[in-house]
Design a protein around this nucleic acid. Sequence first.
DNA 1: ATGACGGTGTGGCACCGA
Length: 258
Amino acid sequence: MKIATWNINSLTVRLPQVLDWLAAHPVDALGLQELKLTDDKFPFAALQDAGYHAVAFGQKTYNGVALLARSPLRDVVRNIPGHGDAQARVLAATVDSASGPVRLVNCYFVNGQAPGTDKFAYKMLWLQALHDWLRSEIAQHPRLVLLGDFNVAPEDRDSFDPEGLRGTIHHTDEERAHFQALLALGLTDAYRLFEQPEKSYSWWDYRMLGFQKNRGLRIDHILVSEALRGAVTACTIDRAPRKNPQPSDHAPVMVTLG
DNA sequence: ATGACGGTGTGGCACCGA
């Protein structure tokens, strides 16, 4: 079973690239972030033609998440239960595989702008709420995958300039502590289960030739629960779409469960 | 580094992202 995550920074602009990518990488499930459209504009028909069921949770202009899967998506949850949030950031659903059900939790984590701002405070509250909800979600669905744009570079090796950017957004001790708290729930960063190239990133700034200079961050992640950890046989970042004309600033991350 | 680059909105720049 192959599962992927991709922040596509406007599904309106990127739908052709999503369809092209799915044709080349016919994954069983794909989590999308930053749809930037409302559900009435979601391209259900085009995705159905490509062989995918879809569940959307969008909003106007900002945020928005979706789950696509070859088999039906059930038990859908939108945003963190009990955590009032005007922003569409979390979409959970269950898909069935040959080895059993898999709970997918697709998230567009808060950016947070900069430490000391209201947005950073919102990020900290959101991260805590996600953590607290996931504890029960994992108990209820032991075979769980947490995937998405985490907006956290977990370690120094996940940043092109860990020294220069220390303490800035994506690199603060507080954000990294929240990431570690997710791991403490029994989740494992699938990408680090394998030897990976140095300077592996999933996002590059559009400006200043960020991609060409590989000035990037690894902030898009796929975490698997203890019950699934032993089944992971591969995890890769596909840089190819970042070379497209009109690319998203993020690359897809893909995991294979044997 | 103040900026850049790209997407959205009811726009003529401001905002947000990372």
